[in-house]
Computed example of a mutant assay.
Amino acid sequence: MPYQTTLRRLATALALACGGASLHATAATTAETPTRIVIGFAPGGALDIFARTLGEKLRVSLGTPVLVENRPGASARLALENVRRAAPDGKTVLISPAPPFTIFPLTYKRLPYDPDKDFVPVAYLADVPLVASASVNQPYRTMQEYLAWVKREPGKGGVGLVTLGGSIHFGVLSLSKAIGVPLLPTAYRGAVMMLTDEIGGTLPLGIDAVAGQMELYRAGKIRFLGVTGTRRSALLPDVPTLAEAGAPGFETASGWYSAFLPAGTPPATVARIEKAMLEAIKDPVVRDKMAALGMEMNGQSGAALRKLILDQRAQWRPVVEASGFTAND
């Protein structure tokens, strides 16, 4: 065999070997690259615990390390901006509450992201029921009695909440219109301060997540008058919905957590992560752990999530526009 031919064949074999090694190295590197779950809240809260619990399941199902990255600030908008700028390779997942997708597009004149164009809905993961509560020392024991009381005392209709410009704020405005009595949404810097005023009797009614109020409820300090949403919460089956109790306006006010990927992520990658997410929240350990934090696992597809977002935004639009409220933080 000529010397040159031998060299050419040897060079070809080496090239193929190196190419194969390169492909294996690339695959290994991709598998070893951590998947980031980005949330817009500080460590230690309910969403942080939820994200880390999901991360443990995804580490196995996706075959990759999973890291939770906390980017608190600007009402979770910093987290959305971080994910918007990420490579669309399935390695960066956003878990977000509802407002950045349903309410903020209606209340902010400018957002650093387009909720419909910059993200791909992946999975509707969990519901976060909210409950209206009052001190046990108040003269009303039910929502119907509260509404009768506030009609007799129209100047005392303060309703506590922790964020202006959210679904509870606009739910209060809807209820106010429905009953013909001015109700004043009163914002607090945190649920603890709101509940302190509620127990002390200076705040007639407060609305916040179930989990943050359960300890006071069990201690007999507050009463639960009604939950948001269209069905009773599995966490509080004996507490009627606010609509059942004669207080309309809160049917779409419950919180939720859902997963999103950057726009441009390949459909096969989206489908793989959707499947892994939905399988994770079916795990009884996950469901029980999150129930203790006031969450109910939902488990709907990305397509269902997209429809939910558009429907809720459409429902809130006339209420927001009628209020004249504009967010400017």
Rank of each mutant, 00 (worst) to 15 (best):
T6V: 15
T6I: 14
R9I: 09
A11D: 04
A13R: 12
G20C: 11
G20L: 15
L23D: 02
A25E: 04
T26H: 14
A27P: 00
A28Y: 07
A31R: 14
E32Y: 00
T33Q: 14
T35D: 00
R36D: 13
V38Y: 06
A42F: 02
L54V: 02
G55Y: 05
E56D: 14
K57G: 03
R59H: 11
L62G: 07
P65Q: 03
V68H: 06
L80Q: 13
L80I: 08
R84Q: 15
A86V: 11
P88I: 07
D89R: 09
G90I: 10
G90L: 06
S96R: 05
P100C: 09
I103P: 01
F104V: 01
F104T: 03
T107A: 09
K117L: 15
K117Q: 13
Y124I: 00
A126H: 03
A126Y: 08
P139C: 10
E145C: 02
A148V: 03
R152A: 15
G160M: 05
L173W: 01
S174Q: 13
V181N: 10
L183T: 10
A187V: 12
Y188N: 06
R189C: 00
V192M: 07
L195G: 01
D197K: 06
E198F: 00
I199K: 13
L205G: 05
G206C: 03
D208G: 04
G220D: 07
R223G: 07
F224G: 03
G229P: 12
T230H: 13
R232E: 05
P248E: 10
E251R: 04
Y257L: 11
A259T: 06
V270F: 10
K275A: 15
L278D: 06
A280W: 11
I281A: 04
D283P: 09
P284F: 10
D288C: 00
M290Y: 09
M290Q: 14
N298Y: 11
N298E: 13
G299C: 07
Q300P: 00
L305A: 01
V319Q: 12
V319A: 13
V320P: 02
V320I: 07
T326C: 01
